[in-house]
């Protein structure tokens, strides 16, 4: 498990030029660039859409680029509804869940990686099996539970169903298996408590995996939309994903403002991804799980 230290293999000598047909590398470049463009062009178009004028989005035909960039659209989104609040709610909820994942998932992963105890297989299996449970199966019972607890329309109501997840536990377990046992044993001999061994010795070794876990948790929670739709009922608790259809007015869909609101969600996540994409790439490679 040498996640952090995987050697970057150079494959330059593996160009296809001399293998398939002359110019195969050139073809590869063209195809790869075209596909990469196909991935980002719709999202770039969303940016263009966000800055178009009302006339441009409501005209009979679509416009590729705005004639003048309507920076005022940003203010219009915030005027139409408290999007600052929605964004803040999204950040609070996703942030709390991420912190919880970072605290609990490694703890559980550590136990499964380094300890042997009765029922270990059964418990691990049961936790992993939760990945197959569609959120719908537990949504209504959760709703009833939270309603009885008076937790609907509150931060705890939005956060608690997602406090830990099987993916994070699995990820951390995979990583912790590679942390040498000797480190912990030496400390154990010196009489360190189990908690200290975990907290001061093992956990610091897993920083790269924690980065992956934190990023994935944050992004996927920012993107969550079904549970907030059901579990919130006032504007104060609304998160940004469920506010996106707000500009679908009866008279017309304000596509420019819908797109601008989408950018409020998309830009922070995209920026975070760009800054940490090295970790994301490793994270996917390491776990192979969403």
């Amino acid at each position: 498990m040498t996640l952090a230290a995987r050697p970057a293999r150079r494959r330059s000598q593996r160009g296809l030029d001399d293998r398939l047909f002359p110019g195969a590398t050139a073809v590869s470049y063209v195809v790869a660039i075209l596909l990469a463009l196909a991935c980002v062009i719709p999202l770039l178009y969303m940016i263009s859409l966000a800055f178009q004028s009302d006339a441009e989005v409501q005209g009979g035909t679509a416009v590729l680029l705005p004639s003048t960039w309507q920076w005022g659209n940003i203010a219009r989104v915030f005027d139409a509804a408290p999007f600052g609040r929605f964004l803040l709610n999204s950040l609070i909820v996703a942030g709390l869940i991420t912190i919880s994942h970072l605290v609990f998932d490694p703890m559980v992963g550590y136990v499964f990686a380094k300890f042997d105890f009765p029922l270990k297989g059964a418990i691990f299996t049961a936790i992993l099996a939760t990945m197959m449970i569609s959120f719908f199966v537990r949504m209504l019972p959760l709703y009833v539970m939270f309603s009885n607890a008076g937790w609907l329309n509150s931060y705890q109501g939005l956060v608690v169903p997602f406090l830990m997840d099987a993916f994070g536990i699995f990820l951390m377990r995979q990583y912790m298996i590679s942390v040498p046992n000797e480190l912990g044993e030496a400390a154990r001999v010196d009489g360190a408590s189990e908690w200290r061994i975990y907290w001061n010795i093992v956990l610091p070794q897993t920083k790269p995996a924690l980065a992956v876990l934190g990023l994935f948790s944050f992004v996927f929670q920012m993107n969550e939309f079904i549970w907030p739709l059901i579990a919130t009922s006032t504007e104060q608790m609304r998160v940004i994903t469920i506010a996106l259809p707000l500009f679908n007015k009866e008279s017309f869909t304000q596509w420019n403002l819908t797109a601008m609101a989408s950018l409020l969600l998309f830009v922070p996540i995209c920026a975070l991804f760009l800054f940490t994409q090295k970790y994301v790439v490793r994270g996917i490679a390491m776990s192979g799980i969403k």
Partner: peptide, 14 residues
């Protein structure tokens, strides 16, 4: 290895 344990666990256990 990671895959094997995950898959077995998830499949059989579930």
């Amino acid at each position: 290895l990671s895959r094997r344990s995950l898959l077995k666990a998830a499949g059989i256990g579930g």
